[in-house]
Write a protein that binds this DNA or RNA. Structure first.
Lengths: 279, 279
DNA sequence: TAGTGGTCTAGACCACCAC
DNA sequence: TGGTGGTCTAGACCACTAT
């Protein structure tokens, strides 16, 4: 077998990648069986091994394939967990939409047939510039960070970090390295700082080296980063930064008036064909 | 110069990548001057050229570097445009938050010192499975797609596609391959289908080949995909899918009661240090 | 032990850009 | 024209997984 001539000019490894992509979308490979090994592709297409690797690199960086040393190259699976970040009912006027306690997420995941667990940490650090700015502090001021490392089905899923002004957390259960019943918002409410509104910033980027190590996503899997600043009547209360492995979740927001539509429309089947392309 | 021994076990190209990453964050290179050329790195670190390329590949796929053929390897710049997708004032009860006409975006970008332009297309296609499901249609049914290809400062920025049931668009200005004054929502309102609520799904993924070609982001730049289903009292009206080049924008949502906080908090300075890492 | 992907080398030629 | 990154080859040895 030889490489189909896409454009006569395009390099071999790109034509090879395109052909493999075609074979993948045509359903030639299943999630359980590996792709042909590099040596076979080498002979099938009549190229050097490095060229095969360049081609597979392309598809790995697109998030379609994953290489497992000693085992083979497989299709990447995309288990998806929906995350209703603006509240269970998606009604913006529900107060509990600002920060659902871990119990809510755990229960939601359970209903979706997934197991969500979390490790907890508390740390005191100097504020990053952007965090300080959002909390109205000077950069470098001490802040309390409460961190949850969440796993879905025992695999890394997200990192959620709540950032508090040190003076606010001092002498409260927020200083304990444990979860609080009802979530941190219960503690805040007891302190007279009931959160009533928030602004979310959403960005996506590739993980840095330590992030890549924790998330174990490998190349081709971006992070989805949600930065929420919550407010009470006086001003900003905390910054919640949550980093999700982008191939494992979908964030849902309700906008405007959804009327009695408290139940969500059934999530549409995630389709790889959704990666439809521009003209 | 030789490669610093991170862990004695880690491969050369990873140690080389780590050292380059260190030099980058230390500010050793500027946006205007290229990094040392491959031949120099080869000699500096005493490795083969392919090893240098493997190391640079790592940083390119992290979105930190961009290679320009014939010119050199440079730091990637990240111009950022904030996109207030839940309404100019971020108040959820504002009706205009559901779909801001292009004029609004253009004006907003102008205030941020950026130029936002758009090319327009109308096409009639068979509905993708997930789109059909959200509109309550059978897969393969004909739908009308109104597409905007948006450029920021003449560079690819986003693709916005509104999907309509063919019967809804037939005989209306929605069939014309042009923008409509006041946006498509004005047409819908005239048809008695005033949009009053919406659900947004947010995901992030790497671009496919055609997307990569249009967005010109290269490896290391994910897409941020916002899929909005709008509703009136009767049911779903349209599906708006917007794909953003993730290194160029940030999506903003207002949640809950922001009170008189109609003016947004000043966007925090985007810091590369925000790519802080897990334990 | 056999087979997989992971790393690394040394060299060649090509395509694009600036001068 | 010279220098940059882009492509490609041929071969070697290593690390991990399964059996």
């Amino acid at each position: 077998m030889t490489i189909p001539r896409g454009s006569a000019q395009s390099p071999k490894y790109q034509r090879l990648a395109a052909d493999l992509r075609r074979r993948i979308t045509a359903g030639e490979f299943t999630v359980d069986d590996p792709l042909p090994v590099e040596g076979v592709l080498e002979k099938q297409y009549g190229v050097a091994r490095n060229t095969v690797r360049l081609a597979v690199d392309v598809l790995v960086n697109e998030g379609r394939l994953v290489r497992l040393q000693g085992k083979g190259t497989y299709l990447r699976e995309h288990p998806v967990l929906d995350h209703r970040v603006s509240g269970p009912g998606l009604l913006p006027d529900q107060r509990d939409c600002l920060a659902a306690p871990t119990e809510v997420y755990t229960k939601e995941a359970g209903q979706a047939g997934r197991e969500l667990t979390a490790d907890f940490e508390m740390l005191v650090v100097r504020a990053r510039v952007d965090i300080a700015e959002r909390l109205g502090l000077r950069p470098g001021e001490a802040i309390v960070v409460r961190r949850q490392l969440r796993l879905m089905d025992r695999e890394p899923y997200s990192i959620e970090e709540s950032h508090y002004r040190a003076g606010l957390a001092a002498g409260t259960p927020l200083m304990e390295p444990d979860q609080v019943d009802g979530g941190d918002e219960a503690v805040l409410a007891a302190l007279g700082r009931t959160e009533i509104g928030a602004v979310d910033h959403l960005v996506s980027r590739m993980p840095g080296p330590e992030e890549a190590q924790w998330f174990q996503g490998g190349p081709g899997v971006p992070l989805l980063v949600q930065t929420r600043v919550t407010y009470d009547g006086r001003g900003p209360v905390r910054v919640i930064e949550t980093r999700y492995s982008a191939d494992r979740c979908r964030l849902l927001y309700g906008v405007g008036d959804l009327g009695a539509r408290t139940a969500l429309p059934a999530p549409a089947t995630p389709v790889d064909g959704a990666r439809v392309d521009a003209p």
